[in-house]
Amino acid sequence: MADAPKPLLHVEHLCKEFPVESGLIASHMKNARKVHAVNDVSFDIMPGETFGLVGESGCGKSTTGRCIMRLTEPTSGLVEFEGKDVGKMNKRELKALRRDMQFIFQDPYASLNPRMTIGEIISEPLIIHNVMPNADERIAFVRELLDVVGLNPEHINRYPHEFSGGQRQRVGIARAFALRPKLIICDEPVSALDVSIQAQVLNLLTDLQKEYGTAYLFIAHDLSVVQHISDRVAVMYLGSMMEYSDWRSLYAEPCHPYTQSLLSAVPIPDPDVQHSRKRIILKGDPPSPIEPPSGCLFHTRCPIAQARCSSETPQLREIAPGHFCSCHFAEPNPIKDASIEL
């Protein structure tokens, strides 16, 4: 397929394990217990697209994002950015990579240095990469950027604590866009914000994407937010990818029982719809990532699990063009009888 568009980011068999014991000796023991945070994750991101990554807390979605940027060193697997192996990059190459790949953090309070003005914060990437050596030019650019993200350019000399959460998140976005990166990893960028502010930030991200053609890896736990912003969506559970597809078919015809129950668990802000639909209530809690279940990771909570599921690990396979699912019994809406069990 010579003509197929080249992916901007290619992730293959990415794995990350964290030692449970933190001691110097214990963590190097051969049979030390490990948290399997990310387990054999593969996907591609095309230039300019938004790839959503959803899952519950502890499913490894944030770790995946951090491994791609090498903020956390992956245990194994391949990450390629524009065909270059990120894992093999030395310090200089990594610095160059970070011009093209940026990060937006969840917590607008912790992600801005309280001792720097927002002008200093936004111009920091420009200084590091020596993009605009002229200070006047840089200040003019930062003011312009503040205006673009909807902040008053006159506030360039203010400190983060003088801003509200939503405004701080705009500062974080301005910083990420300062170098006009090709890919931005957004780690729960709106989950700390109020509903009305959430919408402001989501619209800003969409507008900026339209203008600059940036691709997003959008990590979030809120399915409706991910659906709203993403072109393609992947669902993670216990460090593994359960299903991924374009947003329309994933939300309309989820083929993995986990995706289906996740979607049915999101309450819809419309009483008519909410009261008329069937809800699938999953039993129990997600298992511990230290000792993940054998076979299919979801079989302990799956309403349609069979004997095969606990012994045989399902592979991620293409069940329809562009729609991948890792379930032995993948089909649209696999859970037919939505029984409520507590």
Binding site: L71, R98, F105, N113, I128, H129, R175
Partner: peptide, 25 residues
């Protein structure tokens, strides 16, 4: 704090991270 990770993510050197971000705080 995330701002230290943010500095790493934008390619800041260790020296810069210590001097600009960690030390003042």
């Amino acid at each position: 704090n995330d701002y230290v990770d943010a500095a790493r993510a934008m390619g800041a050197s260790d020296a810069r991270i210590i001097v600009r971000h960690i030390f003042p705080n």
